[in-house]
Design a binder for these strands. Structure first.
Lengths: 198, 198
DNA sequence: ACGCTAAATGAACAAACGTTAGTTTTCAAT
DNA sequence: ATTGAAAACTAACGTTTGTTCATTTAGCGT
């Protein structure tokens, strides 16, 4: 039987939201489909109207998250091509995304190993492009002699790791507001790339 | 039957090593005891001669890892009480530990959510003490006016996240040696805390 | 208004899971 | 050399897991 007032899209959004929360809380393997179904208010078998397998579900979640992050980044970087402005935009976007949607990026970082080869390649490919964006900003800043780092690739890795760390401890009701966090980390970022004109 | 030439200690070390590798590769939930037993060369039931439950096994692994990290840190910091020397020692130890024993720290960061409340409290308690060490170094550096950061706690978090990131991409056979990494990250660390005399 | 499709149900599947129990063999101390 | 404890084996247990299937019902385009 089909339930009254249910559309494909509504149910999918509920599945997606519950899936992200459950996987973030317990991990992919420990998040059972029966538990997921209960959270959605549905039987376990019904989930297969919305995905082909649990594995495909995970791959879809992670891929979509990375695609959204990358799309938002490109939108944020389009406004200004100056490396200083772009680094500022990068930090702001990254922190905003990683605090507002911490569960999603959390599983995006944690559950890569739960993917099969194909999904893994897709998601790490997207992640690689994200890292490349930052590396390119740093390199252009060095060419313009406004930034100075000994190794642009490692600097990009160090920066992203530093920024991503917030999603492991950030608490929306905590001591620091999102805006304050962005200020702090923007400062750290410019220090890291050796930008003098702060 | 007991197997020829086997002692409690030998088997335990094999279990520990295989457990760390399997959990790092597949995650705690996905690392089954039957697979672990096969890697050790033993039957699944035999594992219960060495731990009380899978959950206790994980808690023991993570606790020991954090204890060793903390002990090595305290040993490294004992040599010199100067904040500059101590920050240098902190970075060197952290990178060395996180590259040499990357699987262990990897699960130490990833599998916290798989612990029950008690184990979780123990491990995060140790981790908190580790973070406090770094925060104390930064604060003493600020009091001496050799360091300058807007928020010592966030700076400590940012630093640790930055340094810990290496264990997600470091490859012993890759472009960068361990020594080179330490140099790079030491530089980043001093930039981050605003140390002028580099 | 009707009919087709799509979303749900509930029951069942085999496989894999953590764990326990009883038994057998080796090690180490007497 | 004998004995008691320790470490391994085999076998089985009750759950839980992801997944499938036939069936039922609601939504939507014609």
């Amino acid at each position: 039987m089909r339930r009254a007032g249910s559309t494909r899209d509504q149910t999918w959004r509920a599945i997606r939201a519950a899936g992200i929360r459950l996987i973030a809380d317990h991990g992919y393997e420990a998040a059972s489909l029966r538990l997921l179904a209960r959270e959605v208010g549905v039987q376990a078998g019904s989930l297969y109207n919305h995905f082909g397998s649990k594995q495909e579900f995970l791959a879809r979640l992670l891929t979509e998250i990375m695609q959204e992050l990358l799309a938002e980044l490109d939108a944020a970087l389009a406004a200004d091509s100056d490396p200083v402005a772009q680094l500022r935009a990068f930090v702001a976007l990254h922190i905003r995304f990683h605090t507002a949607r911490k569960d999603e990026v959390f599983i995006g970082n944690m559950e890569l190993r739960s993917l099969t080869r194909q999904g893994f390649k897709t998601v790490t490919g997207l992640r690689g492009r994200y890292e490349d964006r930052l590396q390119a900003i740093i390199e252009r800043g060095m060419k313009a002699e406004t930034f100075g780092v000994p190794d642009a690739r490692v600097a990009a890795f160090a920066l992203i790791a530093m920024l991503t760390g917030v999603c492991t401890w950030y608490d929306p009701r905590g001591r620091l507001s999102q805006a304050r966090l962005i200020d702090l980390y923007t400062d750290f970022a410019f220090r890291l790339v050796g930008y003098g004109g702060r």
